[in-house]
């Protein structure tokens, strides 16, 4: 085959349902021979935060924000019918029934398939999220110009 086609995805949302949609397309793209990059920004950063430990940010407002917006793949909520966790739990149950991977499993699959996970530097700065808040699968911290550089060369670009 000729040079690989590129797929770049902005993961803006931290909702469980949107995160799943993003990972489904990323892994499918990789399985179709595409070079896939996922850019996590704003609430989307919650998807790639570590599940354990605290977010060690400086300053009262940032500390409050990261306390209320802790994130981590296991804490993501659905955009509808979260119902204090009941709805999200039920959806996870339905997904398990059909052997649909969890976010953690999708992250592992994506990495195995060569998908790159990138965090937005500006969001990290504004929200006071230090680099060690992210899981080890995250490849690097980049800016908007890097994303657009990739998007310009991509056959498909998505904003989720």
């Amino acid at each position: 085959m000729a040079e690989k086609e590129k797929l770049s995805i902005v993961m803006f949302s931290g909702d469980l349902d949107r995160a799943l949609a993003g990972f489904m397309l990323a892994t499918t793209g990789a399985s179709m021979g595409m070079e896939v990059k996922m850019f996590f920004t704003f609430w989307g950063l919650n998807i790639i935060k570590k599940n354990e430990g605290g977010i060690r940010s400086k300053g009262l407002v940032k500390k409050m924000l990261n306390f209320m917006n802790r994130g981590g793949s296991k804490r993501l909520k659905m955009s509808k019918f979260h119902m204090l966790g009941l709805g999200t739990g039920m959806m996870k149950g339905l997904m398990k029934e059909v052997k649909m991977p969890s976010i953690d499993e999708f992250i592992a699959m994506a990495k195995d398939m060569g998908v790159k996970l990138l965090a937005c530097s500006t969001s990290c700065g504004i929200m006071g999220i230090p680099e060690d808040s992210f899981r080890s699968e995250v490849d690097s911290i980049v800016g908007a110009a890097y994303f657009l550089g990739e998007a310009r060369q991509s056959k498909v670009s998505l904003f989720i």
């Binding site: 489904m24 499918t28 059909v98 052997k99 398939m113």
Partner: peptide, 9 residues
Amino acid sequence: GLYCPIPII
């Protein structure tokens, strides 16, 4: 019993 995109992957 598996749904898209798992069969493809």
